[in-house]
């Protein structure tokens, strides 16, 4: 009896404390917002509530965007906008001064076009591989396999690693005196130029970025797969459909909305690729893995610090991303309607 009373007493104290804290918070905000509401009226109060997020957006997105836009029309090496010389569209003219757009060597700013083409092949290969591998993994992990939870963690684990850590680990594995070459030599083979041959470096850049991101997309696709009603598979089985037919006629169509999300996210992320590649190959060998964001970074932050040119290039990149996103949204809407 005494014990039970003790427990009830403790419960009451905790609840009272909770009440006190809750009431204090409510009183605080009430005291804060009531005068504001009295001042501006209740209809305008929603603006007050979105203000914190709006401030974050303005400071970290809108102002940098406006600054970037302004820098794109200025020249010189001065850091502060006020000290820079207006040059109109010269930076864009510089970027697009090309004899033949398909041959970067004929362009005045050849590295911009090399980076552009590198980004295109990287997006195509990386996103293609990422979607296929993530889908395959999600399909396997959706089956009743042994230690399923363990394997799900294993595939997701690289997502938790810092991109720089991922890049450095792979660099140590792949360098001339690295682990992989040591294994090859131990088995009587010749060292392979993983980090100095254009083909190998491009392959590993795609491989590493797929390896480090696939867990995230696998998880999204797995959720999509689990939302497909099992009755559909049972019905198709009764109708005599084999597994491939069930996959083509049921899984793929019903997974399309999720696939579209994966596609949009992975394309945007691939176009913005920087951290892993910068730490892994730093754009090399030569310019073989220099992508758009690294070109912008190098142009702005390496001597001779052409901030205007970099800002113009980033506007071009933003335009490409905008067009890609609009196309994907349109395709998404059409498929929803269909």
């Amino acid at each position: 009896m005494a014990e039970g009373g003790g427990i009830r007493g403790e419960y009451r104290v905790r609840r009272t404390l909770g009440d006190v804290v809750f009431n204090s918070v409510v009183d605080f905000f009430d005291g804060l917002f009531r005068p504001i509401q009295a001042l501006i009226g209740s209809k305008r109060m929603p603006y007050v509530f979105v203000l914190p997020n709006l401030l974050v957006f303005v400071i970290f997105i809108l102002i940098p965007m406006i600054l970037n836009f302004s820098y794109a029309f200025t020249g010189g090496q001065q850091f502060f906008l006020a000290d820079r010389t207006p040059v109109g569209g010269d930076n864009f003219a510089h970027l697009f001064d090309c004899g033949n757009f398909l041959d970067p060597n004929t362009c005045r700013e050849d590295t911009f076009w090399i980076a552009m083409f590198n980004t295109v092949w990287f997006v195509v290969l990386q996103v293609g591989a990422l979607v296929v591998v993530s889908l395959g993994t999600a399909l396997v992990l959706n089956q009743k396999v042994k230690a399923r939870a363990f394997f799900r963690s294993v595939f997701f684990y690289p997502v938790l690693l810092s991109p720089v850590v991922v890049a450095l680990i792979w660099r140590w594995i792949l360098q001339n005196d690295g682990l992989l070459n040591a294994l090859i030599v131990a088995f009587g083979g010749e060292r392979l130029p993983f980090l100095v041959s254009v083909g190998w470096t491009r392959f590993w850049v795609v491989f590493i970025s797929v390896w480090s991101q696939m867990g995230f997309y696998t998880l999204i696709l797995l959720a999509g797969l689990q939302s497909i009603p099992t009755e559909l598979y049972e019905a198709s089985s009764i109708d005599g459909a084999n597994r491939w037919q069930a996959f083509r006629r049921i899984t793929l169509p019903l997974l399309m909305p999720t696939m579209l999300v994966v596609l949009v996210l992975s394309v945007i992320r691939a176009v913005q690729s920087f951290d892993i590649v910068y730490a892994f190959s730093n754009g090399g060998p030569g310019t073989a893995t220099t992508f758009m964001v690294q070109y912008i970074f190098n142009t702005a932050f390496m001597p001779p610090n052409q901030y205007g040119l970099a800002a113009a290039a980033s506007l071009v990149l933003a335009s490409i991303l905008l067009i890609l996103t609009l196309i994907q949204l349109r395709v998404g809407r059409q498929s929803e309607l269909a």
Binding site: N176, P193, L195, V196, Y278, N282, G283, G284, M302
Partner: peptide, 12 residues
């Protein structure tokens, strides 16, 4: 020469 130095170091 060790190719990692010049060819494997990107723009650094």
């Amino acid at each position: 020469t060790p190719t990692d130095v010049w060819l494997g170091s990107g723009g650094n």
